[in-house]
Simulated assay, not measured.
Amino acid sequence: MVTKNQIKLVTSLQQKKYRTKHKLFVVEGKKSVRELLEAGCKVFGLFSDKPQEVHDFPNVEAVSASDMKQMSSQSSPSGILGVFHIPESEKIVTKDWVVALDSVRDPGNLGTIIRLCDWFGIEHLLCSLDTVDCYNPKVLQATMGSIARVNVVYTDLQEHLKNSGAPIYGAFMDGDVVYGKKLPEAGILVMGNEANGISKEIEALVSERIAIPQFGPETAESLNVATATAILLNEVRRD
């Protein structure tokens, strides 16, 4: 039987300060929980109000539907909820491409970008300190389990780029068209804030400004940052 303290703990993990305090995060849904288990993420606890549907998951604690409703961040709980320990970040290695995010605030965008990194084999995602928390429930929902395979590091982005020694490519509306450009085997791709793009401080460190050309009438102001990341990573891997 789940206790009131367990429910209180799980509910508190919807807030970043408690995730940081307890070094725990919550994932919901069979696919996402399974992906984290298979990736070897350390489990704190698994809870389900439909244990008959998740009989192949280890050590699942059965809870009532009303308890699951309290613990879940979803309006319609998926039936299984996993609490995992936040892993230690690995050191960033620039022997391949790294994606860096400058103040990306939307959880859906970050979740999609993590999923894109997984798809395109990008092992490391570098985030400025004011980028949305990757363990935010909405981010985790959008990653579809890819959070288990991408090393997400929060750091002073300006300081890191200064000392990286790698070529730094920034996405700008007025950059050089990326199509046909010979890209190196390794580098850092910087993507900017949804409203303001790359900040002036980070822009000063960019060695090459690249852009995705617009073919339609100039009515769309810009591409969504996650969509732009997908197009640019495709070009990175095409070479």
Rank of each mutant, 00 (worst) to 15 (best):
P213E: 02
L157K: 07
K4V: 11
A142V: 12
A148C: 03
L189T: 03
A65V: 12
G187M: 07
A230G: 12
P87R: 11
K16F: 00
T229S: 14
Q52E: 09
H124D: 12
Q52F: 07
K23M: 07
R149Q: 02
K182R: 08
I92R: 01
K181M: 12
R149M: 04
R105T: 10
V190M: 10
K138L: 07
D118H: 11
C127P: 01
K200I: 05
Q70C: 11
G29A: 03
P107W: 00
M68N: 08
Y18F: 13
W97Y: 12
F172A: 01
E53F: 13
A148F: 05
L183V: 08
Q70K: 14
A204N: 15
S89E: 15
K8S: 09
E194V: 02
K17C: 05
I7V: 09
V26R: 06
L37P: 08
T112M: 00
I92A: 07
M191S: 06
S199H: 02
I114N: 01
V206N: 10
P213M: 05
G170F: 07
E53H: 14
Q141C: 08
V177Q: 02
F44D: 09
T20Y: 04
L110A: 07
E218Q: 12
E123F: 04
D130E: 01
V150K: 01
T3L: 15
I113E: 00
K95R: 14
Y169G: 06
P167T: 09
Y179K: 14
A211Q: 00
L37Y: 01
V43W: 00
I86Q: 09
V132I: 15
T112D: 03
